[in-house]
């Protein structure tokens, strides 16, 4: 299974970014391989429509779960349409911590 976490930096020890569409990095976590791959979000500075375009990136990567802070309305609709589950990470936690919390079912599901 592939998860995506929005992050302020490229490393799994970076803090979770609370904004989805304008997150600097998407970190994809492959649960079978236990690998983390960071991808810079090219839409972080884009003019508009960043929510749907970022959601498209997740779809194209085949992620089925997203861990982030907050979602805009347009991103929500795309993620919902694609059947991606969304969980809210605790403020200030790192990507690794958020992953652990997800595995222990401690995250609040927001979509």
């Amino acid at each position: 299974m592939k998860l995506c976490i929005t992050a302020k930096g490229e490393s799994p020890d970076a803090q979770v970014e609370e904004r989805f569409g304008r997150a600097p990095f998407f970190i994809f976590h492959d649960t079978e391989q236990d690998t983390y791959t960071a991808e810079a979000n090219t839409f972080a500075d884009a003019a508009g429509g960043v929510g749907p375009r970022s959601a498209q990136v997740l779809i194209d990567h085949g992620a089925t779960v997203l861990v982030t802070g907050q979602l805009g309305g347009n991103a929500r609709r795309v993620l919902e349409g694609a059947g991606i589950e969304v969980y809210q990470a605790a403020a200030g936690s790192t990507v690794r911590e958020a992953m652990a919390a997800y595995r222990e079912n401690k995250l609040n599901r927001i979509l």
């Binding site: 839409f43 884009a46 003019a47 508009g48 429509g49 960043v50 929510g51 749907p52 375009r53 959601a55 498209q56 779809i59 347009n74 609709r77 795309v78 349409g81 694609a82």
Partner: peptide
């Protein structure tokens, strides 16, 4: 360039406000 179209595995979503 405005993010108004998202292509999902089974459908298209269109955002008229974008």
């Amino acid at each position: 360039r405005y993010g108004a179209i998202a292509v999902l595995p089974e459908k298209i979503m269109f955002f008229h406000d974008l």
